[in-house]
Nucleic acid binder design. Sequence first.
DNA 1: AGAATCGGAGAACGACCGTTCTCCGCAGCG
DNA 2: CGCTGCGGAGAACGGTCGTTCTCCGATTCT
Lengths: 195, 195
Amino acid sequence: MIDEQTARERVVSAADRLFYARGVQAVGMDAVRGESGVSLKRIYALFPSKEELIVAVLRHRTDRWNAGVTGAVDGAGTPRERLLAVFDFLAGWFREDDFRGCAFINVFGELGGGSDRVAEAVREQKESFGREVAELVRAAGGPDRLAPQLVLLAEGAQTTAAISRDPDMAGHARAAAETLIRCALDGAGEPAATA
Amino acid sequence: MIDEQTARERVVSAADRLFYARGVQAVGMDAVRGESGVSLKRIYALFPSKEELIVAVLRHRTDRWNAGVTGAVDGAGTPRERLLAVFDFLAGWFREDDFRGCAFINVFGELGGGSDRVAEAVREQKESFGREVAELVRAAGGPDRLAPQLVLLAEGAQTTAAISRDPDMAGHARAAAETLIRCALDGAGEPAATA
DNA sequence: AGAATCGGAGAACGACCGTTCTCCGCAGCG
DNA sequence: CGCTGCGGAGAACGGTCGTTCTCCGATTCT
């Protein structure tokens, strides 16, 4: 018999793989049992309902996402490079074989209207990403309005890369981010400026 | 007894409302019957399967989207204003009560991995939007690389507005688009430029 | 060793889904 | 007026889902 902690991790990571690949509603609890090797009885002892499991999966994804972004950002030098590192992180992700867009956006589209708990977990992840970008912008000396603009680029890149299957979307987003950062930091063309 | 054309329209528009509000898999064919007032037998005579109905709904949405964008763009004067009008169109949409993000992104996240026909319909819509923006960029004299950047902003604004429930996302996207357009058209800061 | 407790495998249950079928009322036509 | 065929309402069917229950072997405690 395996540890409770281990069983939890196995169930969450199996459910994560399946939900992300096929969508939440298309995956039955029995498939989670098969993929995780943990019996249904145990799964329901650990997670009282499928919704609870979904929320746990989303939290798990949030942790992995944060670790990935932090790792990419920490490898960069200047504050400006640290901001752009977010888009390099996306580029690597988009090239993975099983990339299928942002799991949070996917699950929100599927269940966001029907489950408040799921919607809340998705919102939390997006807000935390927004805060992270805002901090990076502040560290680079950029204005507050720059952060949401960069976030929009990152979000758009994720969905567009998933649908078009074109990993270059990260490059487009990075290029746009470079322009926005340069304009905001180097003051090239304020709203009232003329050519 | 109603016209075949009328029945078709009623079914598609009812299914569109329901699918968009609750997600595709959460809506049974019986709910479509109830909302449209068309009998199940007739629905299945018009659409041989639910998947076929989904595709028809997506095509219907594509038409409405194209009409909306075209209408917004045509109301604007200069080529630059015509590009920005896309984001004003988004702003109006985000403020609607029943706004729940981009239906194409939602359905792609829910079914894209499982239904090639649905994925194809979603891809078609996104490609056609990309072409439309590319044309507007060309008309404004901007470089080709500007179009995908603006598309990413629009896509990101849609998902972020849906999740955060903040209609101002269109404003952020519009501001970023203004900067990108200005930099691309007025040449403020080419990639090699230094501060 | 014998009793009690635990967990695994998988059947069972009730609910729903997509799809088809049955039944019945009603129009048109001889 | 009786017959025929079409369409609507909704039951029926086979399947799947989330969740619970039953049975049984293994382990632990005395």
